Structures are given as structure tokens and as C-alpha cells.
Computed example of a mutant assay.
Amino acid sequence: MPSVIVLLAWMIVPLVMTVWFSFQYYNLVNPEAAGFAGLDNYEFLVTDPDFWAALTNTVILLGSVLVITVGFGTLLAVLFDQPFPGRNIARLLAISPFFVMPTVSALVWKNLLMHPIYGVLSVAMRAVGLEPVDWFAQYPLASVIAIVSWEWLPFALLILLTAVQSLDHEQREAARMDGAGAIAQFFFLTLPHLSRAIGVVVMIETIFLLTVFAEIFVTTSGGPGNASTNLAFLIYARALLQYDIGGASAGGVVAIVLANIVAFFLVRSIARRLEV
């Protein structure tokens, strides 16, 4: 009971303070202009074009990373389930990016791989006679999606590989004896078996991907303009760059509501699959 009380206080106190500040005029630059704001902070938020741009970028980032990680994770899981020389080493190398901190991953991609002058991609493009690309200036959101996908692909691979290994070998053998080829086995046997595992991957990744921040902060700082700003970075910018605590708190409340709505439908969907 004491542990439960501490955990509840740890969660409820910041939430209550965020809701309270969302109804207040509270700017750190002008602390005298304080008072009850009503719904003004929320009205300003939903009428601000930056909010809708950040919401759109959040949805694009979330959907793109889910498609990439689930798609490639499924294919890699099937591949790594096959026997080949060095399979254990290959599995270890494929899973290892998940244990790299987001800040470190972003720095590696920014300075080692995607730098327009001395990055690995630029050197490779010059070697074949192509003009190097300034990825974070020309394709900021796509660059962030690539980094986040690289971080989360090992997680999807780990969950899906475990699910593939739990597939009954007798079913595979029976399908093979019935004349089913590799493609037919994948679509009619392996993929249906992975449906629950894919649902779990989608739910967990969705919860975490809604709060992507470090990769954006380190690489693009939400720019150019608001091209790579998501909800998490927008809230940070309002609170710590514009010092508008009331507006940032309103954004935090909206983000919490959206996250809970998404989590509610995902949990219900997975629960229905587990009952089948």
C-alpha cells in the first residue's frame, strides 16, 4: 500500500498541476500578468497553426515508424528464424540498436551518417557522382523518421521473432506437405500467427512514439520552421523557449487526452484478439 500511494502521488500531483496551470495566465517572463484564464489557453492552442502542424507531424511520424518497424520487423523475424551461418551474431547485431540511448542515436546519425559534408551517406553519394543532400534541412521529418525507425526496429524484431519461434513446426510441415510454398506459408500461416504480436508491438510503440523528443531536439530543433515539430517538442518550445507555462500546460493536457484515447482503442483491440 505505501508503494501504491507513492506511485499514485508521483503520477497525480504533476497531472493536477498541469491541469491547473492550463487554466491560468502564467508566463515566466511576465509573472505579474497572472490570473484565471478560463479556456483562453486552449482556444489559443487550437487556433494556432503550429499546433495543427505539430499534430500532423506527430501522426505522420507515428504512422511511418509503425509501418517501417512492423513491416521490416516481420520480414527480418522470418529471415532470422531460418538457419544460416552466424545467425546468433546477426540477431545480436540486429537487436543492439534498441539499447542505444535516443540522444546518442540522434548524434550518430546527425554527425556520422547524415552530415552533408563528411557524413557516410554524403561520401557514398560523391563516390557515385551524385550531389550530397543536407538531409535535416531538405527532408527534416523523413530524417527523424529514419532515426526513430532504426531505434525501434530491433524492438519489433525481438517481439516478432519470439512469436515466429512459437509457431508449431507440425503446422509448417503439414502446410509444406500440402504443397504450400514459402509465400503461401507466410501469408496464410505465419502472418495470422503474428497478428497478436503485431498488435502488442503497435500498442507499445504508439505509446512511446507519441512522446518522441530527443531525436528532434538534437537534430532539427523542430525546424526548419515547424517542419519537424511534433506535439512533445511544441510543448517544450512553449514552456522553455517561449516561457508560456499556461499554454504549454494546455498542450500537455491535450496530448494526454489524445494519448489515452489512442491507448484505449488499442487495448480494446488487443483484448478482443486475445479472447479469440
Results as ranks from 00 to 15, higher is better:
Ile68Phe: 05
Ile68Thr: 09
Gly71Pro: 05
Gly71Arg: 06
Phe72Pro: 02
Gly73Phe: 01
Gly73Arg: 03
Thr74Arg: 03
Leu75Gln: 08
Leu76Trp: 01
Ala77Val: 09
Val78Arg: 01
Asp81Trp: 01
Asp81Gly: 15
Asp81Arg: 05
Gln82Ile: 06
Pro83Asp: 09
Pro85Gln: 11
Gly86Ile: 07
Gly86Val: 09
Ile89Val: 15
Ile89Ser: 13
Arg91Glu: 00
Leu93Glu: 01
Ala94Leu: 12
Ile95Tyr: 06
Ile95Arg: 05
Pro97Lys: 00
Pro97Tyr: 05
Phe99Lys: 08
Val100Ser: 05
Met101Gln: 13
Met101Asp: 10
Pro102Ser: 09
Pro102Tyr: 04
Thr103Val: 15
Thr103Met: 15
Thr103Lys: 02
Val104Tyr: 08
Ala106His: 03
Ala106Lys: 02
Val108Lys: 00
Lys110Ala: 10
Lys110Trp: 02
Asn111Gly: 06
Asn111Tyr: 14
Asn111Phe: 15
Leu113Met: 10
Leu113Ile: 15
His115Val: 04
Gly119Glu: 00
Gly119Lys: 04
Val120Ala: 14
Leu121Gln: 09
Leu121Arg: 07
Leu121Ile: 13
Leu121Lys: 05
Val123Lys: 11
Ala124Ile: 12
Met125Thr: 10
Arg126Leu: 13
Arg126Val: 05
Val128Leu: 08
Gly129Met: 11
Gly129Ile: 11
Leu130Gly: 10
Leu130Thr: 06
Glu131Asn: 14
Pro132Gly: 05
Asp134Tyr: 12
Ala137Trp: 08
Ala137Asn: 09
Gln138Trp: 10
Tyr139Gly: 01
Pro140Arg: 05
Pro140Gly: 11
Ala142His: 08
Ala142Asn: 07
Ala142Leu: 14
Val144His: 03
Ile147His: 07
Ser149Thr: 11
Ser149Gln: 06
Trp150Pro: 02
Trp150Leu: 03
Glu151Arg: 15
Glu151Asn: 08
Trp152Pro: 01
Phe155Cys: 06
Ala156Ile: 01
Leu157Tyr: 04
Leu157Ile: 06
Leu158Gln: 08
Leu158Phe: 14
Leu160Ile: 12
Leu160Ser: 03
Leu160Trp: 01
Leu161Trp: 03
Thr162Tyr: 09
Val164Lys: 00
Val164Gln: 00
Gln165Leu: 12
Ser166Phe: 04
Leu167Ser: 00
Leu167Cys: 04
Asp168Glu: 09
Asp168Thr: 08
His169Met: 11
Glu170Met: 09
Glu170Ile: 07
Glu170His: 14
Gln171Lys: 12
Gln171Ser: 07
Gln171Trp: 12
Arg172Gly: 11
Glu173Arg: 15
Ala175Ser: 11
Arg176Ala: 14
Asp178Ser: 14
Asp178Ile: 06
Ala180Leu: 13
Gly181Tyr: 10
Gly181Thr: 03
